[in-house]
Design a protein around this nucleic acid. Structure first.
Lengths: 192, 192
DNA sequence: AAGTCACCATACGGACGAGTATGGATCGCC
DNA sequence: GGCGATCCATACTCGTCCGTATGGTGACTT
């Protein structure tokens, strides 16, 4: 009990800073990413930070790239293994709806689209997801142009939902009602 | 050419500051709302500002309330006059899609939902719009629970669209393609 | 056991923005 | 045309946060 109260007294690596940065972004947004605040949270001081990174901007960049690389497979990787294209979209909807935690960073980044560093990342990620949705709709039986528009609509609904329920607390929809909403989405957006 | 280059040399009122604040919010977001920047833009200095407002926070509050009061009738006020409930929703979709300018403030506020002052305003405004949508869907023939969920889906799509196209410039959809997308939305979301 | 390298603390400089103090200008009014 | 109220400029203080400089400490080599 003499060494430290809570944090493990191991030394830090650049990866630790990046993960902590992503965590902070998910909780308080990109604007709250300050080096002294992060350092406090990690139990060290700025001196540590500026050994690992040249600047605050560099940390943001590294964190964003890490998120883009390692964060995407969790979302889309599993889904691609579902053989039946017919079942794929409903399954995707239900999983996304019930595992909202990985989407917190995306929601936070969505609110920082005025920041020059996040725009290209979000553009790539969103574009990739959109393409995934589009082909999924085509495989589900929609003709090409309709599939694209349906993907746009679906993805917009996803993004809007994140905003309205994470950040804003619209009449705090409860659990059963939420499930009903998801099924309504499936019935409305996915062709029979 | 000696007095001033561009701005009119009239004195300012609190209303001028609030309108300028809303304009700045629409263009650069809530975070960019700085009093010295605003003062420069209005051709005065901070001395003027702190006569009209006690603090920066007070300006934000006043601007938000002004937006909530006077900004809403333009969006929903006209629509309520459309007699046929059947025609109301498609007309609403098309108008909103083609007059995106009044929605810029809303889009900016959406990205500032971590700010304590904007949350209640956005909660009220969104709630009101949601209720409008819900009754519109009921009048269009949907049973109550479905109407609510459809309204949720529609509004989420609206919000998501604002994010993805204002701030992010997803593959910069062109004009004809955009019209096709709006019609696709109408066909998909509005019951025949 | 001495030295080297990786990691971190402390202390400082400087930019920026909010808010205050105070005096000057200008308008309305009698 | 003088006078009070309104509006604005100038010149500060203060707190926050980025980045720098420099010295210290632990672990690991040889």
């Amino acid at each position: 009990m003499n060494v430290s109260s809570k944090p493990e007294r191991t030394r830090l690596s650049a990866e630790d800073w990046e993960l902590a940065a992503l965590h902070l972004i998910a909780e308080q947004g990109v604007g709250a990413l300050a080096v002294e605040a992060l350092a406090r949270q990690l139990g060290v001081t700025k001196g540590s930070f500026y050994w690992h990174f040249r600047t605050r901007e560099a940390l943001l960049q590294a964190a964003l790239e890490r998120w883009e690389q390692y964060g995407e497979r969790e979302v889309l990787g599993q889904i691609e293994q579902i053989a039946d294209p017919r079942k794929r979209l409903p399954e995707l909807f239900r999983r996304v709806a019930h595992e909202l935690q990985p989407h917190r960073v995306y929601a936070a980044l969505l609110k920082a689209l005025d920041h020059p560093q996040v725009v290209p990342v979000m553009a790539r990620v969103s574009q990739r997801r959109m393409e995934f949705l589009t082909t999924a709709y085509r495989e589900a039986g929609l003709p090409a142009p309709q599939a694209l528009n349906r993907a746009r609509l679906t993805y917009a609904a996803y993004v809007g939902f994140l905003q309205l329920n994470f950040t804003l607390g619209l009449p705090r929809i409860n659990h059963e009602e939420f499930d009903a909403y998801v099924e309504h989405m499936i019935a409305t957006l996915i062709p029979a």
